[in-house]
Amino acid sequence: MEEVVLRLEELRFPSIADVVVLSVAVNDEAVHIEARSTVAGAICPGCGSW
């Protein structure tokens, strides 16, 4: 199981820019991936402001 977790921690999200995987937890029912953005902010899709 530890090998699976180590491999999952190497996950990258190529279709989502500026994301880093922080942790991965695996049990018999689910895989929980904690990720965060590496940028300080983003553009609002509604108004276009930062």
Rank of each mutant, 00 (worst) to 15 (best):
S15M: 11
V21C: 04
P14L: 00
G48Q: 03
S15K: 04
V31N: 06
E10F: 09
S15G: 11
A42C: 14
N27G: 12
I33E: 01
V39M: 09
L6G: 06
F13V: 03
A25Q: 07
W50P: 14
S23N: 09
V5Q: 05
E3M: 10
M1V: 14
V31P: 03
R36D: 08
G41L: 10
V39K: 10
V31S: 03
T38M: 09
S23E: 14
E9I: 14
G48T: 04
V21S: 07
N27E: 04
S49H: 06
M1C: 14
A25L: 10
V24Y: 01
E34H: 02
A42P: 05
A40F: 06
C44E: 02
E29A: 15
R36F: 05
V20K: 08
L11Q: 03
E29Q: 11
L22H: 05
E9P: 04
L8I: 07
V20M: 07
E34Q: 07
G41M: 08
L8W: 03
F13M: 11
L8D: 02
V31L: 07
S49T: 15
M1H: 11
W50I: 08
A30Q: 12
N27V: 11
G48W: 03
V5L: 04
P45G: 02
R36Q: 13
H32R: 05
V26H: 08
A35P: 03
R36T: 13
V4G: 09
A35K: 00
V24F: 00
G46F: 08
G46D: 00
L8K: 13
L11P: 04
G46R: 15
T38E: 03
V26C: 08
S49C: 12
E10L: 12
I33G: 13
C47L: 06
I16K: 00
V19F: 07
L6V: 12
A25S: 13
T38Y: 02
D28E: 13
V39R: 10
L6I: 09
V26S: 07
V21N: 08
F13G: 01
A40K: 15
S15A: 14
H32G: 10
V4W: 10
E3V: 14
N27H: 02
V24L: 02
W50G: 13
A25T: 09
T38H: 10
F13T: 05
A42M: 06
H32K: 06
L8T: 12
N27K: 02
P14M: 00
V26I: 09
V24K: 01
V26W: 08
P45V: 01
E9Q: 13
E34M: 08
S37E: 08
E29K: 12
F13L: 06
R36V: 12
E9N: 14
E29M: 12
V19K: 03
I33C: 04
C47K: 04
V5G: 01
S15R: 04
P14C: 01
A25H: 09
I33S: 02
V39I: 15
V31M: 08
L6E: 07
A25K: 05
E2L: 12
S15E: 15
S49D: 15
F13W: 05
D18V: 05
D18Q: 09
H32D: 15
S37V: 10
L8A: 15
E34S: 13
V24D: 00
S15Y: 07
V31F: 00
I43R: 00
A42K: 04
E2T: 14
V19L: 11
R12E: 13
A42W: 10
S49F: 10
